[in-house]
Measured scan of single mutants.
Amino acid sequence: MTDQQAEARSYLSEEMIAEFKAAFDMFDADGGGDISVKELGTVMRMLGQTPTKEELDAIIEEVDEDGSGTIDFEEFLVMMVRQ
C-alpha cells in the first residue's frame, strides 16, 4: 500500500470502505479485481455520462499508481477520497 493509499484509508470509516467496495465490485464486471477502461466506460454510460476514450484513459491514469492500466481497489479508494 502506497502512502497515498494509506492516507485515503485514514479518511474513511470501515462502513464507508465497505460501501466503496460494493461500488467497486459493480464497476469490476468481470470480477478480475480491477477496473478496466471498458468497465469504467460501461458504468459511466449507465449513469448517463458519455465519456470519450481519452477521458476514460485520463481518469485511470490519474490514479493508476502501479502503471497497470487499470484501477485496483486501493487506487479506487484514492480516487473516491479525491472527489
Rank of each mutant, 00 (worst) to 15 (best):
T50V: 07
D72Q: 14
K53V: 08
I17H: 02
Q83T: 14
E7K: 15
D30Q: 10
G41S: 11
S36M: 10
T2L: 08
D57R: 08
Q49I: 08
G69E: 06
P51L: 12
E54S: 14
L47K: 00
I59R: 06
P51G: 05
G31H: 15
T42L: 11
Q5M: 13
V43C: 15
M44F: 06
E7F: 07
A29P: 08
L40M: 14
S13C: 04
R45D: 13
G33C: 02
K53P: 14
I35Y: 00
G31Y: 02
E61C: 15
I59L: 10
G32H: 13
R9T: 02
E74C: 04
M16R: 11
I35C: 01
E15W: 04
L47P: 00
F27T: 04
R82N: 06
E62R: 06
A22R: 14
G31F: 05
D3P: 13
G48I: 01
K53I: 10
F20I: 07
E65G: 13
E39Q: 12
E7Q: 09
E62M: 07
Y11P: 12
F76G: 01
A8S: 10
K38A: 10
M46V: 09
D64T: 11
S10H: 09
D34N: 03
E55A: 12
E55D: 09
D25F: 04
T70Y: 06
D3C: 12
F73C: 01
I59Y: 13
V43N: 00
F20S: 06
E39N: 12
Q83N: 05
E7Y: 06
E39D: 05
E62H: 13
E62Y: 10
A18V: 07
I71Q: 00
K21N: 08
V78G: 13
V78Y: 08
T70S: 11
A23L: 04
T42G: 13
I35F: 02
Y11T: 12
S10N: 15
D30K: 10
M44Q: 02
T2C: 01
M26E: 09
M26A: 14
D30M: 10
D3W: 05
I60P: 02
A22S: 15
G41Q: 11
D34K: 15
A29Y: 15
E19L: 02
P51I: 14
E74M: 01
T2N: 15
D66G: 07
V81A: 04
A22C: 04
M44L: 12
A23W: 06
M1D: 12
E74N: 11
A8G: 08
V63K: 15
A22N: 15
P51N: 04
T42H: 15
G48K: 10
D30A: 07
E19R: 08
